[in-house]
Amino acid sequence: MEHYTMNLNLQVWRQKNKQDKGHFDTYQVSNISSEMSFLEMIDVLNERLIREGSDPIAFDHDCREGICGMCSMYINGKPHGPWEGTTTCQLHMRAFRDGDTIVVEPWRAKAFPVIKDLMVDRSAFDRIIQSGGYISVNTGNAVDGNSIPVEKEKADASFAAAMCIGCGACVAACKNSSAMLFVSAKVSHLALLPQGSPERKTRVLDMMAQMDKEGFGSCTNTGACEAVCPKEISITNIARLNAEYISAGLTEDK
C-alpha cells in the first residue's frame, strides 16, 4: 500500500447547542496522512483549533473500532462516509485524494436533535428498547442454557440482526427518517428465538408505538438504510417486523 499525504478542504456543521441555528464552517487541513483514520484527521484539526484559541469540533466517538455505535458523521452525503459496511471511526483517509472537499454533517432527523456540532441525541433509541426490546427474565430465573435448543439457522439469523450497533445511520440515510431498520433488527433478534416468543406480540406493538411517538417516519422500502448500515443488517428484517406487527395487531384480543 502506497502512503501519501493530502491537503483537504473541510466543510463542517457547527452548532453551539440545541437552540443555536448552526452553520457550516470551512477548514483547510494539510499534510494529512493516508494512514490516518477519519477521526484522527478531525483530531489533528481540533488540536490546531485549540491552539489557535477556537472551539474544537464536538463529535461522538468512543471505541474507535466500529462496535460501540457512538460515531455518527454524515460524510459527503453518506452516513459513515464512502466505504461499505464501515463506521466513521473505521474509515481511513486513503478513501480520499489530495484536494478533495469533504462535507461533514450531523445525522439529520427531528427525532435526533443536534446537541452540539456533529453530536446528536439518540436517546429515542433507548426509549424504543425500553418499550419492549427485551425478554422479561429476572436474574436467577433461567433454566439450563442447553434446555432450549435453537435451530442453527434461526440462531444465526437472530445473531445477524442482533449485530445492530444502534448508531442511527439508517435513520440518517432514510428519506423518511424512519427507524424501521433499527426497530426491526431488535424485533427480529428476539422474535427468531424461542425465548422471545412469550412477549412476541406485545413487543412489536409497543416498540412500533414508541417509534411513532418519537417522531420517526414510516418505511417506504427504498433500501437506503440497508445500504449504509455499518453492520449490513438486512432489510428483510423490516418485512419480518411488518409480518409480526400485522399478525399481532390483527390477532391480539384486547
Binding site: I135, A142, K152, A155, D156
Partner: peptide, 22 residues
C-alpha cells in the same frame, strides 16, 4: 455456569451447533 443460563434466557444469540445446542 449461571451466567450462560441467564444470558441464553435473555436472548443472547450464542453460536450453536446444528442440533440446536450451544
Amino acid at each position: 455456569t449461571n451466567i450462560i443460563d441467564q444470558c441464553v434466557a435473555q436472548g443472547v444469540p450464542f453460536a450453536r451447533e446444528y442440533g440446536g445446542l450451544l
